[in-house]
Measured scan of single mutants.
Amino acid sequence: QGDIVVALYPYDGIHPDDLSFKKGEKMKVLEEHGEWWKAKSLLTKKEGFIPSNYVAKLN
């Protein structure tokens, strides 16, 4: 089961498979690959890669 993270900063995706998000948006982490994680937005239901240093895990 994936962790839920919250965006600390907004992110505008650079690549087509990036997931753009707004500050405060919550996402479910699907896979962790070093600095880039695959996640699904709980708001938009879209999936893509996010920079892990832009988010914090919720406990």
Rank of each mutant, 00 (worst) to 15 (best):
G24P: 00
Y9K: 11
D3C: 14
L42Q: 05
L42K: 03
K45W: 11
A7I: 02
L43F: 09
I14H: 11
K28V: 15
S20I: 06
H33M: 10
V29D: 02
P10C: 11
K28C: 12
N59Y: 11
K40H: 09
Y54H: 09
Y9A: 08
F49Q: 06
V29S: 01
Y9S: 06
E25S: 03
A7K: 00
G34L: 04
L43Y: 10
A39H: 00
F49C: 12
N59R: 10
E35I: 12
I50D: 00
Q1S: 12
F49V: 07
V55A: 05
K46S: 07
I4W: 08
K23G: 05
I14S: 10
L19I: 04
K40A: 11
L19M: 06
P16T: 09
H15L: 09
W36L: 09
K46N: 09
Y9H: 08
E31I: 10
Y11L: 03
H15N: 11
K45N: 13
Q1D: 12
F21A: 02
P16S: 09
G2H: 13
V29W: 02
L30M: 09
S20K: 07
L8H: 03
I50L: 05
P16Y: 08
P51T: 01
S52F: 07
L8Y: 03
D3K: 14
N53I: 10
P10E: 11
D12W: 12
K28E: 14
Y11D: 00
L42P: 02
H33V: 10
G2Y: 11
P10Y: 07
S20M: 06
F21M: 04
F21L: 02
P10K: 12
K23T: 08
H15F: 12
L42H: 04
K26N: 06
V5L: 05
K46G: 07
L43M: 10
I50K: 01
G24E: 04
D12L: 12
L43Q: 08
P16A: 10
K28N: 06
L30I: 10
V5H: 04
V55G: 02
I4A: 03
D12M: 13
H15M: 10
L8N: 05
T44F: 03
E47P: 02
A39R: 00
D12S: 12
V6R: 05
I50S: 00
M27P: 01
N53E: 09
K45S: 14
Y54N: 04
S52G: 07
P16K: 12
D3I: 15
T44L: 03
K45I: 05
L30H: 04
H33F: 12
V5G: 02
L43I: 10
H15S: 10
N53P: 05
L30P: 01
G48V: 00
V6L: 06
K46M: 10
W36M: 10
H15Q: 08
